[in-house]
């Protein structure tokens, strides 16, 4: 019995020491990590939005885009870039669930008419050397200036307007489809997204 108590005591002390150290480290790194994540979002926002004068990550609207399998609401954040006080671009993240390997997260920037001003691949797990070419500038450039009205949102292999990548059709097809669905959502909810104070769920 005494031996048992000793074992429990030692383990408890070690775990408590570990907990103490971890809480200190967590406290010290919390700010820098939040800053790194904010910077990454800002980098992507500036890459897809037209030049703006505000901080788009501070000027957001959140809308419910559906429910997940458990019935909880899924929200999507719309980041609004402004120039002279007027919204000149909106950015949002879309997820392509039908990539070759896992989800592909894409940041899409559009002007107020729904024309794409740029896209940025946030993360993916596509095949190195093949599917990961969706990260290359020439592929992302394909989307600039395209809107639901002036382009056929399919890859060329499927009869659309977008070049696929040699040896990897699935990844570009997934990206094109996800951006198209994003544009359709933007078109349907344009008024809410562009609303002065932002209706829907306030953030």
């Amino acid at each position: 019995m005494k031996e048992m108590l000793r074992l429990a005591l030692v383990l408890t002390l070690i775990a408590a020491g570990a907990g103490l150290i971890l809480s200190l480290v967590e406290k010290a790194t919390r700010e820098p990590i939040a800053e790194q994540r904010r910077l990454e979002t800002l980098r992507a926002l500036n890459a897809v939005l037209p030049p703006n004068e505000n901080s788009p990550d501070q000027d957001t609207v959140k809308l419910i885009i559906g429910q997940d399998r458990r019935g909880r609401d899924l929200a999507r954040t719309f980041y609004r870039g402004r120039r002279d006080g007027h919204i000149n671009g909106v950015a949002f993240t879309v997820v392509a669930p039908d990539g070759y390997s896992g989800n592909i997260a894409v940041m899409v920037g559009v002007d107020p008419d729904g024309t794409v001003t740029g896209i940025e691949i946030l993360n993916h797990a596509e095949t190195p050397g093949l599917g990961d070419k969706i990260e290359e500038p020439w592929f992302k450039e394909l989307f600039k200036g395209k809107s639901l009205g002036n382009a056929d949102w399919r890859v060329k292999k499927d009869g659309g307007d977008f070049d696929q990548i040699t040896g990897a059709t699935i990844s570009p097809r997934a990206v094109v489809g996800a951006v198209r669905r994003g544009l359709e959502f933007f078109k349907e909810h344009r008024d809410e997204i562009m609303a002065p104070s932002g209706r829907g769920v306030q953030s």
Partner: peptide, 21 residues
């Protein structure tokens, strides 16, 4: 178990430090 607690703690330190810096 003691070794694992010690190792896991340092791994978490590395993980947090790496994400921050």
């Amino acid at each position: 178990p003691s070794f694992i607690v010690v190792i896991a703690s340092f791994v978490t330190v590395v993980q947090l430090g790496m994400e921050a810096y």
